[in-house]
């Protein structure tokens, strides 16, 4: 229901709460898109245009601890092997995870470059970590496309890319509460975990490689 949401956002931004109904009617008669689930009626902190009036301010990064339960999802790694996501994450190494897609032009080039920098900063500790990037555009991002993307960011063996069926990728996004209804709507999130069974540290926003390295070191050295 994006058109209505956007209209609503515009109308709210313009202080004209009466307008959406007229547009909702106009859209509905096309009878084409009846999914109400993405609709943001609050006009507030959601993802509608109204929420973006602070975009000129400095980038804010927020951190929180969270427990996610990741179901048995089958993904396909960039080397074409079918793997289980929980098994990949529970291979004994600390995990640093994010979601990307290769056609993404604004957000992902930044987060992927940050992972590349982090990889360099880790130096000899690099192979002790498992960096995981999961695509949110699975039908486009084949293992071959992901390998090419990995080369672009000089990903070494500890940084792997994953795709899968649409259903599996949706389940992975839902498991980490990063699903926003559409790939174009995704936000930068980095998830870190020291070891299986422990809580996740979730960082929303464009954390720098320095910040991620700091968080990672704190996490793995925590008593």
């Amino acid at each position: 229901m994006r058109p209505i949401r956007t209209m609503l956002g515009i109308a709210l931004a313009f202080g004209m709460a009466g307008a959406p109904a007229a547009y909702a009617g106009d859209e509905m008669h096309m009878g084409m898109n009846m999914d109400m689930s993405h609709m943001d009626m609050s006009g507030g902190a959601g993802t509608g245009p109204h929420a973006h009036h602070h975009h000129m301010e400095q980038q804010k990064v927020t951190r929180m601890t969270a427990d996610y339960s990741v179901p048995q999802i089958r993904l396909v790694r960039d080397d074409n092997r079918t793997v289980s996501l929980p098994d990949e994450m529970n291979d004994g190494r600390p995990v640093i995870l994010n979601f990307i897609y290769t056609a993404c032009t604004a957000v992902c080039p930044v987060t992927s470059r940050t992972f590349e920098q982090l990889q360099d900063m880790l130096g000899n500790d690099r192979d002790k970590v498992h960096m995981i990037s999961i695509t949110i555009d699975p039908e486009q991002d084949t293992p071959e496309r992901l390998s090419a993307y990995a080369r672009k960011y000089d990903a070494k063996s500890q940084w792997r890319f994953y795709t899968g069926s649409s259903e599996a990728i949706l389940a992975a996004q839902r498991a980490f509460d990063v699903y926003h209804g559409d790939k174009m709507n995704h936000a930068p999130v980095t998830l870190l975990r020291a070891a299986p069974g422990q809580s996740w540290l979730r960082i929303d926003g464009f954390a720098s490689a320095d910040e991620l390295l700091g968080e990672y070191r704190k996490l793995v050295h925590a008593p």
Binding site: T47, H52, H55, T105, A187, P188
Partner: peptide
């Protein structure tokens, strides 16, 4: 311009 996630362009 465009919009990507919370970022407006």
């Amino acid at each position: 311009g465009s919009q990507e996630g919370r970022y407006i362009i």
